[in-house]
Design a protein around this nucleic acid. Structure first.
Lengths: 231, 231
DNA sequence: CCGTACATATCGTCA
DNA sequence: TGACGATGTGTACGG
């Protein structure tokens, strides 16, 4: 990992063209060849970057650029696509290299898969007398998150999202439509479940006759007394 | 901007829980309080981070942690949500601060707006004998990207995306449905246009009677001989 | 401030 | 390898 603080301008050409005017920025050059250009604000997304696999070459600075104040120029080329990033450096304020080694990586907990698994284990959160048919019920247009049976013995398709948006309702609509064509399953009801349901999504879901369920990960874990928490 | 290279472990608690085992990483602390934790690989996404607005506090290292080798501990708290990031530092290999100033920001060229403008100027890419009615044709559920007339004088609604996904087909479906209720426009046909159309989206679009058109930005520019390129 | 649409998204998974 | 869905998505531009 090489860290450079430099006054520079940047040009990118790939799926789109973009350029950065002259300013002081942080350049992060990683071991795999990738380059990130960060400013002193914004969030984790760099102003500009090149993803691996790519190579960085130092290119000749022509007279015109030299007169404009360019002391060094780096050309970063993607190995597979034709993407090119050119960094024109006017002044280097800091330059250091560091040996980092391989990172063991991030361990996550509490994503959609957990919601699905936990709520399937406590299927009653979707309604009194519900029973699980199966998780990831496969159809021609993709897997239904949970297929269950309600207290009346009728089929229920459950779509689970972390954030309940209109897209999820459309997805559930397609599943319910398809499943209702199967006479051994019909009538099939729909339940839209998420940790957070947007008002617009709720309106659309209820308009289409789907029930909305807000899932709480802590509550689900509370129901499961045998669950050992990571923290 | 403060750049720190340190051997550390990290715990995050927010929308999900996550933690990073002990390893050497780069910590980027920005002027706005945001913190990025980068390894020496991957792409531009940090292993872990905290978005602004947030504040970093140094917290007391208790005896147990001190014995485990922790020399310093930073607690980064989001000001609006309850998200918390705790960085436990075992060793600092590098620590430097830099004055960067405000960044003028990125200037882009070649995004959806350009696709829409260029293809409207060369409406024949959508079909022989097509003529433009107007761009951004406003309806109750939002603007239709392009409204055109085909060789038979019938109305065509065109939905443009950079990447053609199922969502875009759903959007086009809603527009065509709505416009067909207007007797002065009906019958209204649909065209789904994108730089790249996913197979699933193409299948759905054609199933719904929409024609698919793949747009090439370079071709569109080639048609327009008066266009001055940036590079 | 909230909601929608776009993005050089990136990332994991599974066929 | 390519398609597909999820993301602590971020970001700009509306109302």
């Amino acid at each position: 990992m090489r860290l450079v603080v430099a006054t520079c301008s940047v040009a990118y050409s790939g799926r789109l063209s973009a350029h950065l005017p002259l300013a002081t920025r942080v350049l992060m050059l990683k071991e795999d060849g990738s380059v990130l250009i960060h400013s002193d604000g914004g969030s984790y997304k760099p102003l500009n970057w090149m993803s691996p696999p790519c190579v960085t070459d130092t290119i000749e600075v022509d007279d015109e650029q030299r007169e404009a104040g360019v002391i060094e120029q780096w050309k970063v080329t993607h190995t597979k696509t034709a993407d090119i990033l050119v960094i024109s450096i006017h002044e280097i304020h800091h330059d250091s290299s560091h040996e980092l080694g391989v990172d063991p990586g991030l361990i996550k907990d509490g994503v959609e898969a957990d919601l699905q698994k936990l709520s399937a284990e406590h299927i009653e959160v979707y309604g009194e007398g519900f029973s699980l048919i199966r998780r990831e019920y496969f159809t021609a247009i993709g897997p239904v998150d949970i297929l269950a049976r309600d207290a009346n013995g009728e089929t229920v398709a459950i779509e689970i999202k972390r954030r309940g948006d209109i897209d999820g309702v459309e997805q559930l609509t397609r599943y319910v439509e398809l499943l209702n064509r199967d006479s051994t399953l019909a009538p099939v009801h729909g339940v839209f479940a998420a940790q957070e349901i947007k008002p617009q999504a709720r309106t659309l879901a209820e308009d289409r006759g789907f029930r909305c369920v807000v899932l709480d990960l802590d509550d689900l874990r509370g129901l499961d007394t045998s669950h050992d928490k990571l923290f």
